[in-house]
Amino acid sequence: MVPEIYYITLSAILFTMGALGVLARRNALIIFMSVELMLNAANLAFVSFANTFQQLDGQIIVFFVIAVAAAEVAVGLALIVAIFRSKHSIDVDQMSNLKG
């Protein structure tokens, strides 16, 4: 039985790496993937807690998160396609029209 804290640590590491990806990469697709990575890190923590406390709720939440992620990916990728169509780029740094 692996101590719960290991999972939490791993989850934190993965989450931080995902955040780093969101912040450091310019490619919108990779930023998206990093977001997925962060979601998974969170899911991992949920499942770990569900196991520790012997409660099904954690797994249920993960189930919903997966569903929402699927929806999010569908819409997000559609957005990226639409943006690409008008700007011919998926570099987020080039979408800075709202500059103050």
Partner: peptide, 8 residues
Amino acid sequence: RVQNGFVR
């Protein structure tokens, strides 16, 4: 300058 338009 904070409002630089960059999502990141």
